[in-house]
Design a protein around this nucleic acid. Structure first.
Lengths: 220, 220
DNA sequence: ATACATTTTTAGACTTGTCTAAATTTCATT
DNA sequence: AATGAAATTTAGACAAGTCTAAAAATGTAT
């Protein structure tokens, strides 16, 4: 079974919108993302459901099936491999890359992608730090490190803590640093090893005592 | 004004069919080439004529206008540049290349093609010996010919081959006739069209079957 | 819990590119 | 020049993907 360019785009965006919300993706959210109308989205969703690429109940939003997910992840793989090529080998600048990769990602040839992957040296991350799934659709393990050892400038995600006192837990909760929270490490101050992070558009200072007890993961 | 994938394909094939026949391209010839029906071709031709990309009089066949020709030549440029990339950098074999290049040639980005061209070192010919037009649509001077048509006495250089079977490749390798090898054409024997060449001070006989599959280039 | 606003779906229409079947034009042959 | 064959065009239909406008379902106030 084969997908059209358009179907692939729907699957890709359903995948991306699913990541943040647990719930099924709403028709309106998809319509906005795809710059189309809600009615068009409904039509396409029905078609994808008939092909067993998404699960769909009227008015309840969509989620990808295993099959749909595999296709979406494949497209992300292709997109990111092409981005590596464009940025590292053709000398593209950061912004120019996206639209072109958007077209290249729909070229259908396993051989092409396998050979491109090899040519690029089997990269695990694209130049923006996006993880590149392998041909089985498996993403590379993100790297884990304690926040007090993380390189300044990285985007990261809270993966765990090594201190479990109530005091620490409530402190974190108040800051919004719960499991899975994503933030950027902006700066580290050498004199006390405290750090400054940006979380949900807020700038927060963390002492070394806090930072050393937080496990974070990052890509690339 | 922008063309669809399909329109571009029509233009490309009209261009290729025009090359051999002087006359306008017939509806049936196009239909056969595009693996579609004559009626579909008529419909599309009317659309292309409305866009001033072809000249068309009912029952008289089509020819490209200047505008249509430019688009067709651009696609050939893209196709051949991608072929160079696939064959020389990704390690594709002779046959696999075509279908993939057929898709890649429709990616629309001047930036992409300019940078790819630069990456490849501004090649003038693809590995099959096809001349690559520049971005203005001008083809390089054709100083290139198959070995079985080359004038006796010339110094030449192997520029490409048109047969990619393992048997042929190992045969050439054994003879030392690799890409870039230089030799002189000493003699041609009319009775079987075999040729005698001198390569690295050795005299070698080549059958017509071998000679006809080797592209050579010569100066002036 | 009822009424209003928002979201989603349906119904019908349009475009692109295709097809089949029938009509028309051109060509080749006598 | 007439006629039958081949090539081409027209007419009408269809699938994909989109749209607008209207109907139905859901969510949210008070």
């Amino acid at each position: 079974m084969s997908q059209s360019f358009t179907e692939e785009n729907y699957l890709k965006h359903i995948y991306k919108l699913s990541k943040r919300s647990e719930k099924g993706v709403s028709t309106n959210a998809l319509a906005e993302r795809l710059e189309t109308k809600a009615s068009s989205v409904t039509d396409m969703i029905k078609k994808l459901a008939a092909k067993k690429l998404v699960d769909y109940k009227k008015y309840q939003g969509v989620t990808l099936t295993k099959k749909g997910q595999k296709i979406a992840v494949d497209i992300i793989r292709k997109h990111r491999l092409w981005e590596v090529f464009l940025l590292e080998h053709l000398g593209f600048g950061g912004e120019e890359v996206h639209d072109v990769a958007e077209e290249l990602e729909h070229i259908n040839s396993e051989t092409l992608i396998d050979r491109l992957d090899k040519f690029l040296g089997h990269p695990k991350y694209d130049p923006h730090g996006g993880p590149i799934p392998n041909s089985e659709g498996v993403f590379p393990e993100p790297k884990r490190v304690k926040l007090d050892e993380l390189e300044v400038g990285r985007k990261t995600k809270v993966m765990g803590i090594t201190e479990h006192s109530d005091a620490f837990l409530t402190h974190l909760k108040k800051l919004g640093l719960e499991l899975g929270a994503e933030f950027d490490l902006k700066e580290r101050f050498d004199f006390d090893r405290s750090v400054e992070i940006e979380l949900n558009d807020k700038t927060i200072q963390l002492s070394h005592d806090v930072a050393k007890n937080i496990f974070v993961s990052y890509n690339s």
